[in-house]
Computed example of a mutant assay.
Amino acid sequence: MMRYGYARVSTAEQDLSLQVEALEKVGCQVRQETASGTKLVGRSELQLLLEFMREGDELYVTRVDRLARSIVDLQNIVGQLKAKGVALKATEQPIDTSTAAGKAFLDMLGVFAEFETNLRRERQMEGIAKAKARGVYKGRKRSVDAKKVKSLKEAGMGAAAIARELGIGRASVYRALSGD
């Protein structure tokens, strides 16, 4: 039986050291990464652990929100672990998927993690709407030079050639040409 730890932060400005320390304290070999917890895509260290772990192993996190911020993602991860005979445990929360109470608590925490993410998204959208109403928020600056796209089109280049020339996608070329 092996104990593996998974530590995650969302941005490079955040510090992993407290998570790593807590996981090492319970005897884990720790994998760590900087990636959003709202999706599983791009989380190579977690994917490596999910593929590598074997029956009887234990996966530790400090808190369930380090693993996933979506109840669907959390349940998928737990399902993969269960299929392999791997228990999920947390150092700061009473989570142990090898027990019924631990599994129930995990599900409740997953619901709250997703709820927190949704609240944060709602507050962000409200702030953006207010800023737009005041004329402060203009959105992301355009990364495609529409004038350059149009001049290349007028010079007889096709969309694919323009995209290659400027290092952008064809869809961006069409958007620039349509004025969006």
Results as ranks from 00 to 15, higher is better:
residue 72 V to L: 10
residue 55 E to L: 06
residue 96 D to H: 02
residue 128 I to S: 00
residue 4 Y to P: 02
residue 33 E to N: 09
residue 171 A to P: 00
residue 154 E to V: 09
residue 81 L to Y: 12
residue 116 E to L: 13
residue 100 A to G: 04
residue 116 E to N: 14
residue 94 P to K: 00
residue 83 A to P: 02
residue 82 K to W: 03
residue 24 E to M: 07
residue 166 L to H: 01
residue 7 A to W: 06
residue 71 I to N: 06
residue 51 E to C: 06
residue 122 E to D: 14
residue 14 Q to L: 09
residue 137 Y to I: 03
residue 38 T to F: 02
residue 110 G to A: 05
residue 81 L to C: 13
residue 12 A to H: 14
residue 53 M to N: 09
residue 7 A to K: 07
residue 48 L to D: 13
residue 22 A to K: 05
residue 115 F to D: 07
residue 110 G to N: 08
residue 93 Q to L: 08
residue 172 S to R: 02
residue 71 I to W: 05
residue 141 K to G: 14
residue 143 S to P: 04
residue 8 R to S: 05
residue 46 L to S: 09
residue 176 A to L: 10
residue 49 L to N: 06
residue 47 Q to N: 12
residue 28 C to A: 06
residue 47 Q to C: 03
residue 27 G to L: 04
residue 2 M to S: 12
residue 124 Q to K: 10
residue 5 G to N: 07
residue 83 A to E: 14
residue 43 R to Y: 05
residue 34 T to G: 07
residue 117 T to H: 11
residue 105 F to N: 08
residue 36 S to F: 01
residue 37 G to N: 03
residue 159 A to I: 08
residue 142 R to L: 13
residue 134 R to K: 15
residue 52 F to W: 14
residue 167 G to Q: 08
residue 51 E to Q: 11
residue 142 R to A: 15
residue 51 E to P: 01
residue 36 S to I: 01
residue 39 K to S: 09
residue 137 Y to A: 02
residue 63 R to I: 01
residue 71 I to K: 07
residue 121 R to A: 13
residue 87 A to N: 10
residue 62 T to H: 13
residue 135 G to Y: 14
residue 90 A to T: 10
residue 147 K to T: 15
residue 115 F to Q: 12
residue 39 K to A: 03
residue 32 Q to R: 15
residue 94 P to W: 01
residue 24 E to S: 12
residue 172 S to H: 02
residue 98 S to T: 10
residue 135 G to Q: 13
residue 138 K to H: 13
residue 147 K to P: 04
residue 71 I to H: 08
residue 144 V to Q: 02
residue 37 G to W: 00
residue 45 E to T: 09
residue 166 L to Y: 00
residue 156 G to M: 02
residue 124 Q to P: 00
residue 143 S to D: 11
residue 25 K to C: 02
residue 83 A to R: 11
residue 28 C to I: 01
residue 141 K to P: 15
residue 180 D to C: 06
residue 173 V to G: 00
residue 130 K to L: 15
residue 105 F to E: 07
residue 56 G to V: 05
residue 111 V to G: 00
residue 1 M to P: 13
residue 144 V to T: 14
residue 176 A to I: 05
residue 154 E to G: 04
residue 119 L to N: 14
residue 169 G to T: 08
residue 7 A to S: 11
residue 159 A to D: 12
residue 70 S to P: 10
residue 73 D to H: 13
residue 106 L to F: 15
residue 2 M to W: 11
residue 77 I to F: 07
residue 64 V to A: 10
residue 34 T to V: 14
residue 16 L to P: 13
residue 91 T to L: 08
residue 38 T to I: 11
residue 34 T to K: 13
residue 11 T to V: 13
residue 11 T to M: 09
residue 129 A to V: 04
residue 139 G to D: 09
residue 142 R to H: 15
residue 180 D to F: 03
residue 97 T to N: 01
residue 64 V to T: 15
residue 22 A to S: 05
residue 2 M to P: 03
residue 117 T to D: 07
residue 173 V to T: 00
residue 93 Q to S: 09
residue 43 R to L: 11
residue 139 G to V: 02
residue 130 K to H: 15
residue 16 L to Y: 12
residue 26 V to K: 06
residue 67 L to T: 00
residue 163 A to E: 01
residue 134 R to A: 14
residue 90 A to H: 04
residue 113 A to M: 14
residue 121 R to C: 05
residue 56 G to L: 03
residue 83 A to Y: 06
residue 48 L to K: 10
residue 103 K to Y: 11
residue 179 G to H: 09
residue 75 Q to A: 03
residue 99 T to N: 03
residue 145 D to V: 07
residue 127 G to F: 11
residue 112 F to S: 08
residue 92 E to T: 06
